[in-house]
């Protein structure tokens, strides 16, 4: 359970979830459903009450040990706008204690090599999104958590991001992908969880959850809560 200070209800409540290593898990829900709070809990940004939580083989309380294994791309463009793409990457790479070659690798991966020395504020929305994602990949994490990574992105950049994410999946990276776009889940993920009002509804392999018709399933969960 997670409750924010001065909040009248829990942001996350009675949540039980298993995500298989190497899978691509989609977290689906409307705005304010609790997706970002769940991600914050997994990343150690937010505390909470729980009976059992293991992440990458570590207890949740051992966050300092598994932090290095997590890559996180927030839904905001969490970059320094006045600094260049390279300076941003170099800074975050230094915090991970990794070198310049990783910065170049990520610049190539995101297709931003030619714009590396431009200030982030001068990049297009799609480029910023790619760079935002690139920062999370600098240290080649085992678990990549993406919080609405395509928000405000044009279709071309969205496809670019999808292709890159699927590349990571093929390399065995475990992915948690938060979105409120059902199509994205259908296209990318192999398992899904639907979250609403801080509670997890339908969840499991994509074909099982979608087989029941997503929309009806969603409505049934709400009805069950009200009973």
């Amino acid at each position: 359970m997670v409750r924010y200070p001065r909040a009248t209800r829990n942001a996350l409540d009675r949540l039980s979830l298993v995500i298989q290593s190497g899978s691509f898990f989609g977290l689906l829900g409307p705005n304010g459903a609790g997706k970002t709070t769940l991600i914050s809990f997994l990343c150690g940004q937010t505390g909470g009450q729980y009976s059992h939580a293991r992440i990458l083989g570590f207890e949740r309380s051992e966050i300092s040990q598994y932090k290095r294994l997590i890559g996180y791309a927030p839904q905001e463009i969490a970059l320094y706008p006045t600094l260049s793409a390279r300076q941003n990457l170099t800074f975050f790479a230094r915090l991970q204690n990794i070198g310049r070659q990783e910065v170049d690798r990520v610049l190539d991966w995101t297709g931003l090599r030619t714009r590396a020395d431009d200030a982030v504020s001068q990049l297009s929305g799609g480029m910023k999104r790619r760079l935002n994602l690139g920062v999370a990949l600098l240290h080649e994490p085992r678990l990549l958590i993406l919080d609405e990574p395509t928000a405000g992105v044009d279709p071309l950049s969205r496809n670019f991001i999808f292709d890159k994410i699927l590349e990571l999946k093929d390399r065995g990276v475990t992915l948690i992908y938060s979105t409120h776009y059902f199509e994205e889940i259908r296209r990318l993920c192999d398992s899904v969880g639907v979250i609403h009002d801080g509670r997890l509804g339908a969840h499991g392999p994509l074909h099982e959850v979608l087989g029941e018709d997503m929309e009806r399933s969603f409505l049934r969960i709400v009805g069950r809560d009200e009973e």
Binding site: S40, C43, G44, Q45, S64, K67, R68, I70, G71, Y72, P74, Q75, E76, I77, A78, L79, Y80, P81, F92, L95, Q96, N97, V135
Partner: peptide
């Protein structure tokens, strides 16, 4: 805080 840089940095080993 607004840009989410703090939130991002909290996931770094800092």
């Amino acid at each position: 805080r607004r840009l989410g840089i703090f939130r991002r940095l909290l996931v770094f080993p800092v």
